Structures are given as C-alpha cells and as structure tokens.
Amino acid sequence: MPKRQPVDVVVVGAGVVGAACAFYASRSGLSVAVVDRGPVAGGTTGAGEGNLLVSDKTPGPEMDLALLSLSLWRELARELPADIEFDPKGGLVVASGEESLAALSRSVEGQRASGVEACHVTPDRLPEVEPHLAPGLAGGFLYPQDSQVQPALAAARLLSAARAAGAHLYLGEEVVRIPRERETGRVGGVCTPRRELSSPVVVNAAGTWGGQLAALAGAELPVQPRRGFVLVTEALPPLIRHKVYAAEYLADVSSGSAALQTSPVVEGTPAGPVLVGASRERVGFDRRLSVPVVARLASQAAALFPVLADVQVLRIYHGFRPYLPDHLPAIGPDPRVPGLFHACGHEGAGIGLAPATGRLIASAIAGERPALDLEPFAPDRFDSVCHVT
C-alpha cells in the first residue's frame, strides 16, 4: 500500500516556479510537499538561460508581474543562504535599421510609463557599450534592470530553503491521480505509485505538462510545448557585457505562430562560454536536433558579433517552453475545481516570473489580498476557446 501523508499544500513541479511556490508557502507557515516526476530543474528550468527580463515585456499584467518578480529576486539574492549567481548585467536591444529602431522607440515609451528604465544608445556609442558588436547598426536601448540567475541553482536554493522550513521533496515520482471529494469536488491531494499525499490544496507547477496535470483534476488548460535551442560556445575571455538581442526578438516572443522563428540573442557567462539563442517553434515534444535551426542561430549570432564567427560550439541543448495562447501564465485558484491552484504557462519567462508567482500563490492559498490582480491570469479564461470545435 502507498504511504499516506497529510500536508497543507502539494506542489507538483520542482522547477523554479514550483520551488518558488514551495518557498513562499513554507515561509507562510504551511506544511508543503513538492512532487516531481524527475529531478530538481529537470524540465524547462534546466534548459533555461536564467533571464530576468523587463526589456521584452509590454505594459500590462506580464510587465507588472516581471517588475514585482525582479524586486523579489533582488531580495532572494541577499536572503538565500547560498549563491544563485544573481547578475544585474543589464540588457541591450539593438536595431539593424531605422524602421526597426522607430518601432523599438515606440515600445520603449510604453515601457517607461510602466516603470522600466531604458536608455537610448546612438550608433556612435554602441561600441562603448558592447565593443564587439557588428558595425552599421542603427542604435538601440540599454535596459539596466535586466538581470540573470543560474536557473538550476536558483531552483535548488529555493527548495533547500523550503525544506529548512519543513517542506518535503519527493523526486522521481509521477502524479498519476488527483482524488476529489465526492460531495464538494474539492481536490484531496495527489497519488504517485509510491505514496498518497493528502491535502486540500494542489498547486499545478508542472510546466509543459501543466495541461496533463490539470486534466487529472478534471480541468482544461491548453498548455503546449514550444521548443527552443541554445548553443554553448567554448570558454572565451570576457567579450560580451550584457544580454544582447535584436529588436526582432520582441516580435518573436509575442507571436502565436507555430512556425519556426529565430532572432539572435547572445550573452556571456561567468564561466566563459557564450550562450546563443533564440528559436521558437511548436513541434510537440520532438527532441530531435534540428541542424537548420542551429545553423541559423549560429549565423545570426556571428552577424551580430563577428568575433564569434570562428568560435567553437561545444554543446547544443534544447528545452520546451510552456506556451499558453495569450502568452500569459495561469496563476491562482481554479474556480472549476476547488483546491486546485495553477502556476504554469509562463512560456520562456518562468525563471524571471517565478518569485512573484510563488508569492501570489501563497497569498491566494492563505486567502489574503494578492500583490497583483489575478484576473488576467485566471486559469479558466480559455474555457470558450477550449470548447470551440
């Protein structure tokens, strides 16, 4: 017989979002269990670059979430007992031509109104900011708030802190059933092949598997995987000071197209290798290496930074972003299933948005007024879409 254990909250998912939910729930005094089918940061988190960005957000709910989360990441970098490699490196968005620069400038106006810092960099000053950039660019904008963490470390440190507060961690255990009370329909916890965790609250932080987990509880959530590749170069002397990307990346992030999209995103790391992205395509969970995508990314990176043209790529990895149709995550209680909370669908921004998500979830579980309005993130907002035939 599986072991039965009662807790206040079960968090399904040991990526950075689930870790943040466990951290803030544990800190509020709740007994928490975290369950994951794999290891810590074994999914999207482990394939991420650790970006904490405001530069790629448009004014509105996601921007509000990003700004709150960035302030919380700064707090966590000071408070957590071990290093998460928090680096306030800043981001630089560059435009290849005047038309692209004009569109970027219009975007910056709205961002500034939301509290984002963005400094115009003229073409003649680009070499001061990034000495190895290709010549002939029309200019760009520097975002000093953009930062970075090491994502797997961040998830591990948050879970370690949650465990220090009493949380339990069960890895390599897939949730196979979410029982519900017959009379009220409320969730009763989760079942894995090894144990039953009894709880009145289940948090779906299952990332790209969030739709399948929701279905176990009887709810629909149209999460789909959106694949992306990252190239890792050989260790290099410090060449790239910021996270640097082309203005076209902004359109790719907000696009709902299932087709392949690539735009150059380049950044250095403390250890020396340079990371090169970014690609997006919806191909299910196809894990095959796409040579054309990798070649395109390498070509675009070398066009942006010619110094990289002859640099060796030592490793290529990929991950799947948990995509929802309106590009906003699902955060908060599910009105269709009492006791079910969602914290998934962050697409490629989950690392940056994790602390705010965790704090909002902890507040919602406690019945407190959340720091942000949860209505834009309502898990049932797709019901009319899901049922269209």
Results as ranks from 00 to 15, higher is better:
H242S: 02
G207T: 13
H346F: 10
L126D: 01
E62D: 11
V283L: 13
V307D: 00
A22W: 09
S254R: 15
D334Y: 01
P264L: 09
A25Q: 11
G350H: 05
E267T: 03
P264I: 04
Q261S: 07
G352H: 14
P325V: 11
L324S: 03
T262M: 07
R227G: 03
G272V: 08
L76Y: 14
T262R: 10
F86L: 09
V385L: 14
V7Y: 09
L52G: 04
V223Q: 00
Q5K: 10
P135F: 01
E181C: 08
A214E: 01
V7W: 09
H120Q: 14
P237E: 12
V265E: 06
P200Y: 06
S160L: 10
R288G: 10
V294N: 09
A155M: 05
V291D: 05
V190P: 02
H342I: 12
Q148V: 02
I316H: 03
G352L: 13
P179S: 06
E128Q: 13
E196A: 10
L374N: 02
T122L: 13
L314A: 11
G189D: 11
Q300T: 00
S384G: 03
A167G: 07
S55P: 04
R157Q: 15
G18S: 01
G339N: 12
D64E: 15
H132P: 00
V190G: 05
A138C: 04
A366I: 14
F382K: 03
P225H: 08
L250H: 10
L153D: 05
L360C: 08
E109F: 10
P39S: 15
G350A: 07
R381S: 07
S107A: 14
A156K: 11
L53M: 12
S255E: 08
Q224A: 14
P59F: 09
I316E: 02
T184Q: 03
R287P: 01
G110L: 10
A164M: 08
E196L: 04
A155I: 13
S299I: 00
Q312K: 14
L297P: 00
Q150R: 15
V385S: 11
A156D: 12
G38T: 02
V7C: 15
L72F: 10
P270Y: 14
V294L: 13
A134V: 10
P238E: 14
D383T: 03
C191P: 00
I331N: 03
P270T: 01
P335Y: 01
V232A: 08
A356C: 11
Y24E: 12
A246K: 07
I361N: 04
V385W: 11
S255I: 05
S28V: 07
R186S: 13
E62F: 03
P39I: 14
G348H: 01
A330Q: 03
G348A: 02
D56A: 14
A371Y: 00
E181K: 13
E220I: 01
H346C: 05
A47H: 02
E347W: 13
R163M: 15
F141W: 15
G42Y: 00
G188D: 11
L169G: 08
E181H: 15
P88C: 10
A19M: 07
L297K: 07
I84C: 12
E196N: 00
R280L: 12
A362T: 14
G228A: 10
V17Q: 06
